[in-house]
Write a protein that binds this DNA or RNA. Structure first.
Length: 525
RNA sequence: GGCUCCGUAGCCAAGUGGCUAAGGCAGCGGAUUGCAAAUCCGCCACGCGUGGGUUCAACUCCCACCGGAGCCUCCA
């Protein structure tokens, strides 16, 4: 059992026990992790990206600490909402699911989420789902009723242990289902198909899986009956995860998951209510459903949907950094301004990388860094800069060890950037740099990049829109010419001309900076 | 109504039973610069929603209140 002991003092907050616990894996050095993915009935909004970015970071960190992680994110591609939406659009449910899955994947890619190992689809797992339901019936935890199959909540004395709720709290689906259930808290494992609905044959007649069962079935087939981490949004704790947990625990007579991790939800900047959520409802009043078209507009105005334009405007890295600046369990307010602020903060790093790159004569992004925690070797008798960075690295890692405190850890990143800038300033490296100071700078940057890589940022150079477009070469050539003319003017101390050029360019959106090694420019957003 | 969580500077935000309460944005002063920008140095909460309590010691634990959020509806 010795090898099961953590090599590093990782602690994880567990929703099940409502406390931080030392991280212990079921198998030595291996982690099975499952995140509830999207129901692909509409384009993803920012809220759908929180979990993937968080757990992408969790996987990066665990891998860095020497674990071999298998991360599963499911795609729910059969569901009432899919059926309704597909009908509205006049396409099949499968076409809709394919389109929306592609949208989801492209958003993940833009945000640098590339650590997912398996993305099982519910419709590819029907056999496993049916088998799971049958086992629950055989073991007496579920019953068939007129083509539906329900989980019998009364049979599970521990029901409610995750959300601290009783089965009575569960309203279940409305409509006709209630009459077929033994008690209101029972939930559907299998739903009989109405005419024209997508369906699969089963021992209980044609139908489709209930919402919760797919996660139990797919996680079992990939990760086993018990696995290490199950994640999702805080809004899934009840009923989804409660029900999943109940099904799996009853079926296997053992815990489903060691650590339940839940991320906080996004809120819109202007009004109450999470992004993409339902509109507000006064307690005690009957739910007032806003008209569908208005609800859609409200959602959009709150930042829901339109992720593609958001990414184009702010870049995926900026959105990712924004999400990781706060603690994953807290609620954060989302909007253009917080995003712009995150962008302003990131500029510090981009500028540091640019000035360092000029000094070193290479791209900072090409500097190698440790990819495993154990790989890092602190230099003996380090120069002051590196001693400081090693200390900041320790600080960063101790925050990550404590329930993946990415928000706290970013402080050390800024401190690192300041130390690096100070070093460049003090050694006047932009005027002349010797090999020794270059090597020190290089090592320092390597540490900064090592930590940044754990957050999944600064992995590749940001491509500016200018270098992206067809006219990039033209712009490049023009700028060289303009800057050359301006340099001549400045050499002649003709500041009126040089300032006129700078002001003029600023008006067309180009910002320039005079430095020791010449003038740089960028297209300011 | 039940179950959770939160309230830290102008704004965002980390954190803690006892060290100067991180960091970012904005702002201010200085170094630097032809002037800017950037960078560096310094300043910016005698204070952690309010009122009690526990304790040698509380922003941190407990209680009440005020304010906010989520869930109890197939939401991530």
């Amino acid at each position: 059992m010795q090898e099961n002991l953590p090599e590093y003092p990782l602690r994880v907050y567990n929703t099940l026990t409502k406390s931080k616990e030392p991280f212990r894996t079921l198998a030595p050095r291996r982690v099975g992790m499952y995140l509830c993915g999207p129901t692909v009935y509409a384009e993803a909004h920012i809220g759908h990206m929180v979990g993937p970015v968080i757990f992408d970071t969790v996987k990066r960190y665990l891998t860095y600490c020497g674990y071999e992680v298998t991360w599963v994110v499911n795609i729910t591609d059969v569901d009432d909402k899919l059926i309704v939406r597909a009908r509205e659009k006049g396409i099949s449910m499968f076409q809709l699911a394919t389109q929306m899955t592609a949208d989801y994947l492209s958003n993940l890619q833009a945000l640098g989420v590339d650590q997912i190992d398996r993305m099982p689809r519910a419709t590819d797992s029907i056999g496993e789902i049916i088998a799971f339901v049958q086992e629950l019936i055989d073991k007496g935890f579920a019953y068939a009723s007129q083509g539906d199959v329900f989980f019998d909540v009364a049979k599970d004395p521990e029901y409610g242990c995750l959300s601290n709720r009783s089965a009575d709290d569960q309203q279940g689906e409305g409509g006709g289902a209630a009459s077929r259930k033994r008690s209101a808290g029972d939930f559907a494992l299998w739903k009989s198909a109405k005419a024209g609905e997508p369906s699969w044959p089963s021992p209980w007649g044609d139908g489709r899986p209930g919402w919760h069962i797919e996660c139990s079935a797919m996680s079992r087939s990939i990760l086993g009956q018990t696995f290490d981490i199950h994640g999702g949004g805080l809004d899934l704790v009840f009923p989804h995860h409660e029900n999943e947990l109940a099904q799996s625990r009853c079926c296997h007579s053992k815990p489903m998951v060691t650590y339940w991790m839940h991320n906080g939800l996004m809120r819109a900047s202007n009004e109450g209510g999470k992004v993409g959520g339902r509109s507000q409802q006064t307690p005690g009043e009957a739910p007032v459903a806003p008209p569908a078209d208005v609800a859609g507009k409200i959602s959009r105005s709150k930042g829901a949907g339109g992720l593609a334009s958001l990414i184009a405007k702010h870049t995926g890295e900026r959105i990712r950094f924004f999400l990781l600046r706060t603690h994953y369990r807290s609620t954060s307010v989302f909007g253009d301004e917080p995003l712009a602020e995150a962008g302003a903060a990131l500029e510090t790093f981009y500028r540091l990388f640019e000035r360092s790159g000029k000094i070193l004569g290479c791209s900072v992004y090409d500097i190698p860094h440790a990819t495993r925690r154990s790989e890092f070797q602190a230099p003996a008798n380090p120069p002051a800069l590196l001693a400081e960075l090693v200390q900041l690295r320790d600080s960063f890692l101790s925050k990550m060890d404590d329930d993946f405190n990415t928000g706290g850890a970013t402080a050390d990143l800024f401190e690192m950037a300041r130390a690096l800038n100070r070093f460049i300033d003090q050694a006047k490296m932009e005027e002349s740099a010797n090999d020794e100071s270059r090597e020190t700078l290089r090592s320092g940057l390597s540490i900064l990049r090592e930590m940044a890589s754990l957050l999944g940022i600064f992995r590749k150079p940001l491509v500016s829109s200018a270098t992206h477009s067809d006219s990039a070469d033209v712009v490049q050539g023009l700028m060289e010419l303009v800057l050359h003319l301006r340099a001549e003017a400045r050499a002649k101390r003709d500041f009126a001309t040089s300032d006129a050029i700078r002001d003029g360019l600023k008006k067309v959106g180009i910002a320039m900076q005079d430095g020791k090694q010449g003038t740089t420019w960028e297209i300011a957003k």
